[in-house]
Design a binder for these strands. Sequence first.
DNA 1: TACAAATTTAGAATAATTATAAATAAAAGC
DNA 2: GCTTTTATTTATAATTATTCTAAATTTGTA
Lengths: 148, 148
Amino acid sequence: MSNPSTLTTSLQKAGMRVTPQRVAICELLANSHEHPTAAMIYEELKPRFSSLSLATVYNTLDALVTLGAVNVLGHAGDDTVHYDADTEPHVNLACISCSRIIDIPSEHVTHLDAEITAASGYKLLGARVLYYGLCPECQKKQIEITRN
Amino acid sequence: MSNPSTLTTSLQKAGMRVTPQRVAICELLANSHEHPTAAMIYEELKPRFSSLSLATVYNTLDALVTLGAVNVLGHAGDDTVHYDADTEPHVNLACISCSRIIDIPSEHVTHLDAEITAASGYKLLGARVLYYGLCPECQKKQIEITRN
DNA sequence: TACAAATTTAGAATAATTATAAATAAAAGC
DNA sequence: GCTTTTATTTATAATTATTCTAAATTTGTA
């Protein structure tokens, strides 16, 4: 849950048009805790924009990522890339069985940005701090499967 | 550059056979700083194993990841997944233009594992601490392109 | 040596993502 | 307001990383 206008203004600053589709994608990203994939965004917006194309979703996501306004978390047990509009330093925790991603607050990540910039000379665009494993529920299921 | 036998023994412990192909894949992973992709591993080993199949590389990587012996870093500007045999806490830094990934030492990441395990109840299998941006060389190139 | 189980292989299949070209919408100039 | 230009969206085709499948091979065991 971050500020939707942060995303749209970053498009605007880059000289890109703020179209209804882009606004909707930005809002959905900003209001979501789900770390959605392109397909999830597409499905959620289809009812409102009946002619929406997946290509538009991908294009908008790419633009936001290149501008550093959205982070690419990568796969989470599925084959699809998850995105995160919350660029404040935090830890993402994925379950590779049910492919859900949750946020974990952490004091330590807040220092990484400065540390890396100082050490590397890179121009940082985003972060992917994602730990993965099995959530408590999927651990239970695994044990049940093993028993059979 | 980690210990190759760590990888092979983790396969062994899981009841899997330690075949020549798997040994070669483990050695390559352990001796590499390149954070290789499946295709890179395949190409490097092809000369030695003329009949090597990409499926074998993917299968072995999947097994190692599931066992927590290798980390999946995800995409790095290309469309291919990069792997890291160094599971000691550290920061990976990718350039999304040339798709190279380097390591950055960091005091802060060493604490994350414990912090996350304590807070979540997840069974952790791996970490993906990857920052991305533009390396110094690619920043120069970008500026040259912009000038034209 | 012979048997059973695991693994490798080659190639086909899948599906996420990207590219293309036409249609549409928005901005700028007049 | 109309025209021109440019950016964007859309639908669809193309690409390609990865997974699946079934046959062939290898390995471990007795």
